[in-house]
Design a protein around this nucleic acid. Structure first.
Lengths: 158, 158
DNA sequence: AGCACGTGATTGCGTACGCAACGATCATCG
DNA sequence: CGATGATCGTTGCGTACGCAATCACGTGCT
C-alpha cells in the first residue's frame, strides 16, 4: 500500500471544511431525530419510528406495503420491522394481510385508526421538519442538499 | 424556480425538493453509519461508537476528557457513555481518572493501547469517510453543507 | 457555617434493535 | 415433475441505549 504519496497530512486527516460537512451531518441528524421524536411523542404519544411506518403506508397504494419493502423504506432490518409491526398491530394502527400472489409474504395495512392517527401526527411532524430544518435553508441550499444526496447515495448505499 | 407554483397543500405537505433534502439526510446518515461501522468492525474489530470515543479523546488535550463533555461530543446520554466507557475500559483502550478540581467528575483517558488502536482505526475510518462521502462532493457542495448545518444546528440542537 | 439547590457519574429497569437460524414458500433447471 | 437454491417473515438471543432515581459533590444564599 502506498504510504502518503501526497503532500497531505501524514494521516490524511480531514480539513476544516470536510470536518464541518461530515460532523455536521451527524449532529444535525441526531438533533432532528431527537426533536421530532420528542414532539410526536408529546403531542400524540407516537414514537417517530411508528410514525414513519404509518407515513409510508399512507403514501402507498391502498395503504399497504409488503413487509420487505416497508423495512427498506423505514431503514430497519426485517426483524426490526417485524417487532415494530407487532407493536403497531397491538395498538390497532395497522393490520397484517396475507399476500395472494406470494404465500410467503404478508402486507402491513393501515387500519382506520391508523389513518386517523397518521392524519393528526402528520401535521405535527411536517411542522417540525419545517421549523427545525427546512425553515433554515434557502432554495439554493435545498437544491444543493438534494444534489449531494443523489451523488452520495448510489455509492454509499451499496 | 422549477418548483410547483401551487400554493401550499391544505396539510402543508412537502414539495419534491424539500422531501429529497429531508429524506436524503436520513438515508445518507443510515448508509454512512452502517458502512463505516461495518468497515471498522471488519478491519479492527472496533465498533464505530468505540472509535468515536477514542477519536474524541485523541483530539483532546492530554488525551482525556470529562465524561460529561465526552457524552455530548459523541452524541450519547450520560448513562450511555458510562456503559460505553465500561466496555472500552474492559478492553484496555481507555482508563478513568479522578478529577482533581471537581471530585464529582472523572476523566476518560486514552491508554497506550487505545492510542495504538486509534492510530490504526483512524486510517480505515478516514478512508471510509472520504470514499463514501467526501469523494462525491465538490468544494461548493462541501461549503454548502457546512453552511446548511450551521444554520440548522443552533435552532435544532436546543 | 449551614442549608437548599444544581451538577457529574453511575445504576436499575425497560425497550428497541441487529444477526443468525429457522420454516415456509417461490423459482430454476435438469 | 423433483431437487436445489433463493427469498419472505418470524423468532431466539445478545447487546446498546435512554429515562428516572440515586449518591457524591459543588455552588450560592442568608
Amino acid at each position: 500500500m502506498a504510504t502518503t504519496a501526497k503532500p497531505l497530512l501524514p494521516d490524511a486527516g480531514l480539513d476544516t471544511g470536510e470536518l464541518a460537512a461530515w460532523r455536521g451531518l451527524l449532529r444535525v441528524h441526531a438533533a432532528m431525530v431527537h426533536a421530532l421524536d420528542a414532539e410526536l411523542e408529546a403531542a400524540h404519544g407516537l414514537p417517530l419510528s411508528h410514525y414513519e411506518v404509518l407515513m409510508s403506508l399512507g403514501e402507498a397504494p391502498d395503504g399497504r406495503m409488503r413487509m420487505c419493502d416497508l423495512a427498506e423504506r423505514v431503514l430497519l432490518s426485517r426483524s426490526g420491522l417485524t417487532r415494530l409491526a407487532d407493536r403497531l398491530e397491538r395498538d390497532g394502527l395497522i393490520c397484517r394481510a396475507r399476500c395472494s400472489d406470494d404465500a410467503r409474504g404478508s402486507f402491513a395495512c393501515l387500519t382506520d385508526a391508523g389513518h386517523d392517527t397518521l392524519a393528526q401526527a402528520r401535521q405535527t411532524h411536517l411542522e417540525g421538519v419545517r421549523r427545525h430544518f427546512l425553515e433554515h435553508l434557502g432554495q439554493q441550499e435545498l437544491a444543493c442538499l438534494s444534489a449531494a444526496w443523489e451523488r452520495v447515495l448510489p455509492g454509499a448505499a451499496r
